[in-house]
Simulated scan of single mutants.
Amino acid sequence: MYIQQIRNATIIVHYAGKKFLVDPLLSDKGLYPPFLAGIREDMRNPIIDLPMSVHDIIKDVDAVILTHLHLDHYDDIAKEVLPKGIKVYVQNEQDAKQVKNDGFQQVEILAEDTLFEGIQLIKTQGEHGRGEDLLKITGQVCGVVFKHANEKTLYITGDTVWYDGVQKEIDSYNPEIIVVNAGDNSWHDMGSLIMGKEDVYEVHKAAPNAKIISVHMEAVNHWTLSRKELKRFGEEKGFSSSLFVPEDGETYTF
């Protein structure tokens, strides 16, 4: 397995001989308005460039996974450039309907027993923030676990904060690699939308032998946790050897 950070939550996962594209945000820098979240509202999204060409990102992709359909996980350029016959996995019927309306022909809802070319894909739960009011705004999200006899178990948490649902998924699947969305992106005074540094530490405590890869950082206007700060926190808490904080374009092999 190897995992490449592209930008924001967009990653490429090479797993059991297949190439997966997760949560594609493929536009040029500044194409979209800022999220009106009370932070850096003078900066258009995404606030940084892609580290490589869109052609290189989507070349030879076997399947796409959309953990949810927020703009920074599934944007207009992705809708335009991805082949309409490619396999696309989504979290529920509502998202499937939207993606089909965008012209994609092979759309499947993730379940606990989804199989793609011998790879087990398991939908996991998530909460895109804390508190009923914020969750009404952010809506339903998911993560995904990858399993195959010849690979380590991989858990992509998606846009979630740490809560007992994430603990349950870790306990259920004992992942050896965990990808967390950890820019601590926030919405006004309503709090965090995704994991911050303390959440990442909780993931480590729940899975002390797992390697943790932190993505969804410094790419859209409402981030609050920098790569530098997360790395420093990992050192302070003594888990830096288990924590990977990639720059855009960086690849890890496991």
Rank of each mutant, 00 (worst) to 15 (best):
I6R: 03
I6F: 07
I11E: 09
V13S: 00
K18M: 10
K19L: 02
F20T: 01
S27L: 05
D28C: 05
P34C: 11
A37M: 12
G38V: 07
I39E: 08
R40C: 02
E41N: 07
I47D: 07
I47Q: 09
D49P: 08
L50K: 01
V54F: 13
H55C: 14
D56S: 15
D60K: 12
L71F: 03
L71Y: 09
D75G: 03
V81W: 06
K87P: 10
Y89I: 11
Q91W: 01
F104S: 00
A111S: 15
D113I: 01
T114L: 08
F116M: 03
G118H: 01
I122Q: 04
E127I: 05
H128A: 14
L134C: 09
L134Q: 13
L135E: 14
L135D: 11
H148R: 10
N150V: 08
L154W: 09
G158F: 06
D159S: 11
D164S: 13
G165L: 10
G165T: 04
V166T: 13
Q167G: 10
E169K: 09
Y173T: 04
I178A: 10
I178D: 12
V179W: 02
N181Q: 14
N181D: 07
G183L: 03
D184F: 02
M195L: 08
Y201S: 06
Y201Q: 09
E202A: 11
H204S: 06
K205R: 15
A207C: 14
A207I: 14
P208H: 15
K211N: 13
S214W: 05
S214H: 08
N221H: 09
N221S: 13
E229L: 11
S240L: 12
S241T: 14
F244N: 08
G249V: 04
E250T: 02
Y252A: 10
